[in-house]
Simulated scan of single mutants.
Amino acid sequence: MTHVVAEPCFGCKYTDCVVVCPVECFYEGEQILFIHPEECIDCEACVPECPVAAIFHEDNLPEQWADYKQLNAEMAPNSPSITEKKKPLAEG
């Protein structure tokens, strides 16, 4: 099982979640973060850290954001790893 970064992250890209991830499974896109589904250990440490509630367990992903499961799986392996907090896009 894995967690998925969904629509609320798009355009804000807070990185509070990446610093608590014990396996460093977050990857950075231009407008959104991604979780690598093969690296996520389902610990849920990232979920309460997300200030915009953008991280969901794949089984609880809202239907309107179902496509984000595949997007995370496709984009994470092709994006740079992120392990340190950065200034979010939402704060300019």
Results as ranks from 00 to 15, higher is better:
9 C>V: 00
34 F>H: 15
79 S>E: 06
41 I>Q: 14
26 F>T: 02
5 V>H: 09
64 Q>A: 11
46 C>L: 02
87 K>T: 14
53 A>I: 15
44 E>D: 10
14 Y>K: 11
8 P>Y: 09
39 E>F: 05
91 E>R: 15
3 H>T: 10
56 F>D: 07
84 E>N: 02
45 A>D: 07
83 T>C: 08
34 F>E: 09
51 P>E: 06
46 C>A: 03
51 P>V: 01
10 F>E: 12
32 I>Y: 11
51 P>L: 03
43 C>L: 02
23 V>K: 12
81 S>H: 13
70 Q>P: 06
78 N>W: 04
26 F>G: 00
47 V>W: 02
19 V>Y: 00
29 G>S: 03
87 K>M: 12
13 K>G: 00
9 C>M: 02
29 G>W: 03
52 V>M: 12
40 C>Q: 14
72 N>Y: 08
83 T>W: 01
14 Y>N: 08
73 A>I: 08
22 P>Q: 09
22 P>R: 13
32 I>P: 03
90 A>K: 14
86 K>Q: 10
54 A>V: 10
74 E>D: 15
91 E>P: 06
75 M>W: 08
19 V>T: 12
60 N>E: 15
63 E>F: 03
68 Y>W: 14
38 E>S: 14
48 P>H: 02
36 H>L: 10
79 S>Q: 01
50 C>Q: 02
71 L>R: 15
57 H>V: 01
21 C>V: 11
77 P>M: 12
53 A>S: 15
8 P>W: 05
89 L>K: 14
16 D>E: 12
14 Y>R: 03
61 L>I: 14
92 G>I: 07
48 P>L: 12
11 G>T: 08
66 A>E: 13
18 V>W: 00
85 K>G: 00
85 K>L: 06
64 Q>H: 04
6 A>I: 06
85 K>V: 00
14 Y>L: 03
81 S>Q: 15
51 P>Y: 02
21 C>N: 10
52 V>L: 13
9 C>G: 00
75 M>Q: 13
10 F>H: 13
43 C>W: 04
30 E>F: 03
39 E>C: 05
48 P>A: 11
1 M>P: 12
77 P>S: 11
16 D>T: 11
21 C>H: 03
62 P>D: 10
45 A>L: 10
9 C>A: 02
84 E>Y: 05
65 W>L: 10
28 E>A: 12
56 F>Q: 05
63 E>K: 13
15 T>N: 00
69 K>Q: 07
71 L>M: 15
55 I>N: 05
12 C>N: 09
78 N>Q: 14
74 E>V: 12
73 A>Q: 09
21 C>P: 07
68 Y>R: 05
32 I>T: 15
53 A>Q: 14
89 L>W: 09
34 F>N: 12
48 P>N: 05
22 P>I: 10
62 P>G: 11
91 E>S: 13
46 C>G: 04
92 G>P: 06
63 E>P: 01
49 E>T: 03
46 C>T: 02
57 H>Y: 05
14 Y>H: 15
2 T>N: 13
46 C>I: 04
36 H>T: 09
30 E>S: 13
52 V>K: 07
15 T>D: 03
7 E>A: 11
25 C>R: 08
64 Q>Y: 07
78 N>R: 14
2 T>M: 02
15 T>L: 06
2 T>Y: 08
27 Y>E: 01
83 T>Y: 11
24 E>L: 04
68 Y>N: 10
37 P>R: 13
24 E>Q: 13
44 E>K: 04
31 Q>G: 00
40 C>R: 14
26 F>E: 02
66 A>L: 08
31 Q>D: 05
